[in-house]
Simulated scan of single mutants.
Amino acid sequence: MSTETPANSNEGKSETVKNGYPQRPITMIVPYGAGGGTDTYGRMLAAQLEKHLGTPITVTNQGGASGSIGTKFVHDASADGYTLLFSAETIGTYRTMGTSSLSYSNFIPIAVTVNDPKLVVVSKKSKYNTLQELLEDMKKNPGKVTMSHSGPGGSGHNQGLILKELGYEVAMTAFDSGNNALLGVLGEQVAFTNPNLSFASGYIDSGDIKVLAVFADERLEKYPDIPAFTEIVPEAKKYLSIPLTPLSLLVKEGTPNEIVEMLRNATKAALEEKEWTEYVETNSAEKLYEKYTDENSMRKFFENWESMICWLQYENGVSNKSPQEFSIPKFQ
């Protein structure tokens, strides 16, 4: 863990702030490949944030190892507010998956932005027309209905683990990306998959896939006819009350408090920009920034997320390190 001055230090203002932050361009690291949901939301946020910080923000993709390479790059950089991290949820499982020693606790949250809704989808040619039909087949044929996902520990895989906890055994098949997992459904290699809405919307509009449910406890305003998963499986609310795919803006631990506050204020203003809100609403993303508005609520959300997902993965043999080793309480 960093030995730099913590963000809540009472010492005098940093030289950076005294000299007027920001004085030069800022880099936002998206620790995944270009074109994905995290990347597109990160670039949209950066464009709005520039307006309120008055300096260019360069978005750089540093993919690999579930985002841990780009995450380490940010943590290795100076804690001066000039290197930001826009991350998906994988950072919460690095320690238990053995991917990295870093976690949410090594960063200071600027904003928890949105939750990109997860779906349950099948090919337009599929025999399944409703979620009930799919679930009934899972019950009749445990371990035989096939589901694709983007890799162990990813959000789609986590959905499969939740299905297992709810008594639905599926045959999970890993692909090397969410795109290929969806193509596996379109090519009828597997029965269903669990894409994010931002990624699947084009396929929905073209009619190439059928959406059987939103993997959440509420319907989407944009697609009011698609049922929420909890309407069919009420006991799933235990797991789906916590957003599965949060996207967060973070800075390295030790960043001076004055800079953190400047970034939070600028981000709050950016999230009110019309271009941002229209993009979020068009993609039916959940506005987490309206629910988690201060550091305490953001950190509590991260803790609850880790508590649920890390234990779910560990107890199903996905991760090899116990959450208890990192003082992560068991999800109740």
Rank of each mutant, 00 (worst) to 15 (best):
E4G: 12
T5W: 02
T5A: 11
A7Y: 12
N10A: 09
E11W: 12
E11G: 14
G12D: 13
E15L: 15
G20V: 01
Y21Q: 05
P22Q: 11
Q23C: 06
M28I: 07
I29P: 05
G36V: 13
D39G: 01
Y41A: 08
G42I: 05
L45E: 10
A46I: 08
A47C: 02
A47M: 10
L53P: 07
T60R: 11
S68H: 02
K72N: 14
V74P: 11
D76L: 08
D80V: 07
D80C: 06
L84D: 07
L85W: 03
L85N: 10
G92F: 01
T99V: 14
T99R: 04
S103C: 11
Y104K: 03
S105F: 02
I108A: 01
P109C: 04
V112T: 15
N115F: 00
N115G: 12
K118V: 15
V121M: 14
S123M: 04
S126V: 06
S126A: 10
S126N: 05
K127Y: 01
Y128G: 06
K139Q: 13
P142Y: 08
V145K: 08
T146I: 07
S148V: 07
G151R: 00
G154K: 06
S155T: 15
S155C: 11
S155L: 10
L163W: 08
G167M: 09
Y168G: 00
M172E: 13
D176G: 12
D176R: 02
N180Q: 13
L183V: 10
G184F: 11
V185H: 03
Q189T: 08
V190M: 12
A191F: 01
P195F: 11
I204K: 04
D205I: 06
D205V: 11
I209P: 05
V211T: 15
A213R: 03
A213I: 09
Y223V: 06
Y223Q: 02
D225T: 14
I226H: 04
P227E: 09
A228P: 03
A228G: 04
F229K: 05
F229P: 04
F229N: 03
T230F: 01
I232C: 03
P234L: 00
P234T: 00
E235P: 04
E235K: 13
E235C: 02
Y239A: 06
T245D: 14
S248G: 07
E253W: 04
P256F: 02
V260M: 02
L263I: 04
R264D: 02
T267M: 03
T267I: 03
A269T: 08
L271R: 01
E273M: 05
E275T: 15
T277E: 14
E278K: 09
E281Y: 09
E281N: 15
E286I: 14
L288R: 09
Y289V: 10
E290Y: 05
E290A: 05
K291D: 08
K291M: 13
Y292D: 04
E295R: 03
N296C: 01
R299Y: 00
K300I: 11
Q313K: 09
V318Q: 02
N320R: 13
K321I: 14
S322M: 09
S322E: 10
P323G: 09
Q324I: 14
E325D: 14
I328Q: 03
K330H: 07
Q332L: 11
